[in-house]
Design a protein around this nucleic acid. Structure first.
Lengths: 119, 119
DNA sequence: CGGTATCCAAGAAGATACTG
DNA sequence: CAGTATCTTCTTGGATACCG
């Protein structure tokens, strides 16, 4: 029976993390989702503070390539480009909420522990 | 009403991803969980193929520092060190399974699409 | 507005050798 | 067995300038 059951999810883990594990990727998906699934380049730039154009563009291109984001270019002057989640991208939202909730809970715990130490 | 609800999960996302977003972290937690929550250093080394001692040690130390792993040293010769998930670490398993399942589904989809292209 | 292109610095990670 | 130490390489990402 070659217990391959445990191998499969592991490769899949790598696959998944390569797609959303990047420094800003999960946040970008989340921001777009929060804003009714449409954000322009400049809006994202403001929301993901301290990111450079280069990095933002690069990250967006990767997300697009992985079919998590749609990129829509309006042929107007000045240029207008909108990013939105694909169906595949939307599938990741529950997971992002899950891990975000865990992170928030952990942060709370740490805060409580630090308070204890102060006393 | 200062819609702060959307800010909180975002910071938490960064917090969470810094803890498990590393190249091998989720996999290590998963491996340990799969093996009845105990794995020795050498066993991990074999399972996480191509990882160097340096990287493995470093990754394990970070996981320990973030309170996701317990490190138990047995005072014997030759040395024996066991790693196991903490309660906090165990909390991450459902999430890891979730994202792993997504990744596996995506891989399947891609395979199907590639077959179509071949035809 | 929404990017590119180029250069450069800092950090992550690999190779190798060694140890209690 | 379970690491550490050192050196080197390789990859990321930042700064800056410029473009359609």
């Amino acid at each position: 029976m070659t217990k391959k059951k445990s191998d499969a999810p592991i490769c899949a883990l790598d696959y998944a993390f390569r797609r959303i594990g990047g420094k800003h990727k999960a946040r970008i998906l989340w921001y777009i989702y929060q804003q009714n699934n449409v954000l322009r380049y400049g809006e994202l730039k403001k929301m993901v503070q301290n990111i450079t154009s280069k990095m933002l563009t690069q990250t967006l291109r990767e997300l697009e390539e992985d079919n998590l984001l749609n990129r829509k270019v309006y042929p107007v002057v000045p240029p207008k480009v909108e990013y939105s989640l694909t169906e595949t991208g939307k599938e990741l939202i529950p997971f992002i909420e899950h891990i975000g909730a865990w992170g928030r809970a952990q942060m709370e715990k740490e805060k409580v522990e630090n308070k204890k130490k102060d006393e």
